[in-house]
Amino acid sequence: MSVAENTPLFDAEDLRRQRAARFERFGKWLLPVAVMIAMIWFWDRLVVWNEIPHFILPRPGLVLETLIKDWPMLFDALLVTLQITMMALAVAVIGGVGLAVLFTQSRLVEMSFYPYAVILQVTPVVSIAPLIFIYVDSRTAGLLICAWLVAFFPILANTTLGLNSADHNLRDLFRIYGATRWQTLRYLRLPSALPYFLGGLRIAGGLALIGAVVAEYVAGTGGIGSGLAFRILEAGYRLNIPRMFAALILIAMTGVVIFAGLSFLSHMLLRKWHESALKRET
């Protein structure tokens, strides 16, 4: 009697694993959506049951209405905030990677400047921002500097770590083959640093948005060309709570979109070779 004849195609463990996989696939989306629907419903009921006036806590429907009604103004504000965020992120990438490369190329530079990079990072941006707006005339430039200050450190720290984590035997191999400094950087250190850099970039994307929003709060001046944070402040002064919520939702969604976009970029760049992007068979 052979084993194959009366053994079922899938044993109990396989079935369990399949069930778990199916649950994982749907649960990943369904559960958060269910939680959100429940929260929104509870929010709505809370307002109705307690008869909370809309200038204290608006009903979700009113927030949505406001979002649609104020869309032209909010969208313009979103574009301003997004522009600062993206520019800050771009400068953070250039500055962070540039400094990291400089640090790994020269121990002297690293020893001299790394402590100051740390000091910049640990000093809260809210406390530096007022000073920046005193010395920098251009409001956009001020916002950019604030957002950059927050965003660049994770890129610097991660890229430095990555550049230094190139395989030791590969480094020896490059030396044996007489590789130049530039070749070692280009063909060995930078590719080794890519996964670390992308990890830092994902953190920096969120931080750039936070930096931009915080700086807008500090900068505080209004008028044309104001970002979402200013719209929130302004709506607060006018007790226009629904608009505060609408702007808040836009900021949160922007953060999610930035994170998702950078995660996708990371996946696309690493999917062929890096452990983090590989699916395990079992």
């Binding site: 035997n169 191999l173 044996i176 083959y177 590789a179 070779w273």
Partner: peptide
């Protein structure tokens, strides 16, 4: 040189890995 570990560049294909000494 051949090390105890294969010591290949994980981001490069087989052909690119073998190309390395020439490339340098």
């Amino acid at each position: 040189v051949v090390f105890q570990e294969p010591t290949l560049m994980p981001w490069a294909t087989v052909a690119q890995n073998v190309w390395l000494p020439f490339r340098l």
